[in-house]
Simulated assay, not measured.
Amino acid sequence: MINTTERDSNYQDLDKMSVQELLVNINREDQTVPLAVARAIPQIEALVKVVVDRMKRGGRLFYIGAGTSGRLGILDASECPPTYGVPFDWVIGLIAGGDTAIRKAVEFAEDNTEQAWIDLSEYAINTNDVLIGIAASGTTPYVIGGLEAANAQGIATGCVVCNSGSPIASLANYPVEVVVGPEFVTGSTRMKAGTAQKLVLNMISTAVMVQLGRVKGNKMVDMQLSNHKLVDRGVRMIMTETGATEEEASHLLEHHGSVRAVIDALKKNI
């Protein structure tokens, strides 16, 4: 049986389409992705809850994947520290083939069933942590090996896949299956499947960070002030929250170093 992600495209003769036809048809397919994600929300909720539980105990969140899936995990992990001001080892993304594979495909790296656990062991992964395998096909050997080893060690496991009834989903304690159907270009899972995975990872990391108290109201009060745009955003947050003038807010932010620190300091003085 052919996986849904490998089935023939619903569109024929792509090479004969005009640019407008290509764009309209790609967009038409893309519009189905959020609906598929919505159907998986109960599964996503269960996975988020276990991640929150483990991280409240001092655990970490690990992503493993190959190719596009691995890159998406690394992207999500790398954006957590600047967005939420968390340590760089709270959310860790690993890709088959190592850092080289982020920019350039490493041949057959995803076919090694033992390498994921070797990679994870470098971080001393343990039962306080959660491991999420990301694989559009649900069959990637690198991810399968990592989940099997984690399960054997009693580590909570989840996954984000785009086929139903896959080997990876059967291994994960908390599977997330987002079935988006055939790709516009047959088998090109960087398209709808990749978009679905990105949406799910956004949901997981954002919901987890909110639950861990890294957001106040709807503001990123712990964000790293790493450029002028973010400093300006922080100043506006303080002005809104405290009624301070722009000059006062700028001085407070420079003195305390973060929006949260400013707000907490002002509360103590009330």
Rank of each mutant, 00 (worst) to 15 (best):
T100I: 15
P182N: 05
G154R: 14
A244Y: 10
T245K: 04
G85P: 12
V185L: 15
I95S: 09
L47K: 06
Y174P: 04
A150L: 03
N128Q: 14
S250A: 13
Y142S: 12
S258G: 04
L14Y: 00
L199A: 13
L252I: 00
L252Q: 12
G85S: 12
S250V: 00
K198L: 06
S226H: 09
G154C: 15
G234H: 05
V50E: 13
V33Y: 11
M1G: 12
P141M: 10
G257Y: 10
E79C: 06
L120F: 13
K49R: 13
L225Q: 07
A152G: 07
K229T: 10
K49S: 14
D30E: 14
L72Q: 10
M220I: 01
L94P: 06
T242D: 01
K267M: 08
A265G: 07
V231A: 00
N269S: 12
K49G: 09
Y142A: 12
I168A: 04
D53I: 01
Q115Y: 08
G181I: 12
M220L: 15
V24D: 15
T127L: 08
A249Q: 06
W90I: 02
A116F: 11
A207I: 08
H228V: 15
I2P: 14
H251V: 00
A77G: 06
D30K: 00
V106P: 03
N269K: 06
K56L: 15
P34H: 12
I168R: 05
V231D: 00
G73E: 02
I118S: 04
I125N: 04
R103L: 13
V24S: 13
G145I: 02
L212D: 02
E107C: 09
I102E: 10
G70Q: 01
V86Y: 05
E248G: 01
N27K: 06
D119Y: 08
A172K: 08
A172G: 09
T127K: 14
